[in-house]
Design a protein around this nucleic acid. Sequence first.
DNA 1: TAATATAATCAAACCGGTTTGATTTTTGAT
DNA 2: ATCAAAAATCAAACCGGTTTGATTATATTA
Lengths: 331, 331
Amino acid sequence: MNGHVTIADVANHLGVSKSTVSHALSGKRRISAEVRSQVMRAVKELGYRPNFAARVMNTRRTGLVGVLVDSLNTPHNTALLEEFGRAFSSHSIQMVLGTTDRIEDGRSLLAKFRSGMVDGILNTLPELDADDAQELAGGIPVVTYRRHRESPLVIDFAAGARTALAHLFKLGHRHIAIIPSESRAQNGLPDPCLTAYCEQMALMGIPTRIFQAPGGTLQAGYEVADQLFASEATAVFAGNDGVAAGLIRRAIERGIRLPERMSIIGHDDSPIAVVTFPALTTLRLPLRPIAAHTVQVLMHAIDPAEPMPEPLTIIPELIVRGSSTNFNNPQ
Amino acid sequence: MNGHVTIADVANHLGVSKSTVSHALSGKRRISAEVRSQVMRAVKELGYRPNFAARVMNTRRTGLVGVLVDSLNTPHNTALLEEFGRAFSSHSIQMVLGTTDRIEDGRSLLAKFRSGMVDGILNTLPELDADDAQELAGGIPVVTYRRHRESPLVIDFAAGARTALAHLFKLGHRHIAIIPSESRAQNGLPDPCLTAYCEQMALMGIPTRIFQAPGGTLQAGYEVADQLFASEATAVFAGNDGVAAGLIRRAIERGIRLPERMSIIGHDDSPIAVVTFPALTTLRLPLRPIAAHTVQVLMHAIDPAEPMPEPLTIIPELIVRGSSTNFNNPQ
DNA sequence: TAATATAATCAAACCGGTTTGATTTTTGAT
DNA sequence: ATCAAAAATCAAACCGGTTTGATTATATTA
């Protein structure tokens, strides 16, 4: 009457009790086939929809998860978010966005979430530690992207790097440089790609050539480019696509022909990889299985009846485009 | 107790009634300063947090809005989403993501939302009409981005186009081409930029040069480039940054020097505008006021006590980068 | 000082579902 | 025909808050 149809309205309309209607709809107790079909019809006729808050109050499930993310304007974050969304939707779960640049907001957001608004939390904030997040979340389950302990998700960057280097080697390159990524460095260890690079070069008896692009930005790549072009290197494995794009920009500016003069491989397969000319050969992280795994870990934490996924190791895959080519031009 | 502290626990701990605690916290009735401070202290000590569902049940406000969006992998969508988030957060409202490629999902999503999960809905789906959305949402308020009738939001693309053309004219260009955008065409009318272009060219007595890049993709830009370079045009106003990037790619490939040979202006100031070389001069939509306005309209719809914003007209602003330059090279 | 207004608090109803113990009806077995 | 088991349904309690009408204590006014 006051606008919305309640379960009591349905019950009265049929002359049965609320519980009968509830059971008919949930199937948690036997209800005669006749009554059940009557209920179904009445629900449709009256346009009954169970009230969200009332349902949550009993079941203690909102069907929502909070996702903490620092920014939506990086392509990696949004691609990841999209895959999270896909994975959650197969569990009929919606994401509540917790976008927060300042860690301060993150805390107050957690406070909101922990009152029962969400069934679980997915933390992707690099600054927010898994333990801190769990602490702040109070009782509700938290999974921290790539840094949770249950059923580890390992991204084998070293293996990806070996693939990339093998590709260059096969093309004939023997003077291969690297620009490691700072952001892939973790708890004291350098970029795993750098480690793998050093190992591989040693294995093949090739000297290492390491350049730095501080910040990992396009601008940083642009600025280190001249150094690189002045070296003997005929190929470079850049820490990310932005840096690689910076190299390309400087090459175009100087009239250096790519990929003839230098083969370039990026990392992440970001959208800019197909914008540059030549388009970037790059390593792609298969985000779908990564997201699916992370989400499944959270689903298990929320509801132990959900299976805990097997530990997963992901190897970045090489996407070959125009920026890497045979080395035909020894000097 | 069973893990969570309720308002009754706080009340018992102090030997007062639930309603006293409730009033002390909400301030809806006078409570003696002494009791109030005792309540505050007990709340802190016991770690009491009002239960989300119970609160919603009474207030009928979840503090959530649903946002329907077709994809997260377009930079425009995500930039917009980020601004929506910012605008909502100033109202202490979180966004529930409704990502849905298929319109089918959109409908079932609306069904979930309308049960009271969200206080309102922001529809950005191009395929979902404002009326349809409202219909599907049942009683709850819906605002459809850029297509709502209350307090209209007008983006004056024509004015933006005039700014861009004036810029080119001032640089000395007299042979200016355009590649209109299909996606800016609306209910039968062509891209407003095209209309403005034709008017301006007529005004200045310059013949129009119209090219097409079907689909508005980078590839389409790449493919129309040769036609364009074969024409007399010394400058081009591309429908979007992707098309412009396609032109640039082809130019680099053919060794055509930019911007000397041709000035290029894009549209939207997408992230690729700073990746190309030269970087793109482009028209930027100031998304912050756009999002703020849209959000305010929704806030008013949710709660009439919130003011209805004034109608807003937005003019895209020209961001000048390297791809447009003086025309010094008449043939 | 009595009458009245105000302050402070309590108890109970309510929001709209789900869950559970009790009751009635039907079925099946002895 | 008798009794137990199963099926079907009901009524009431409950989830955890907010809201409201009633009650008591205190302050103000006539």
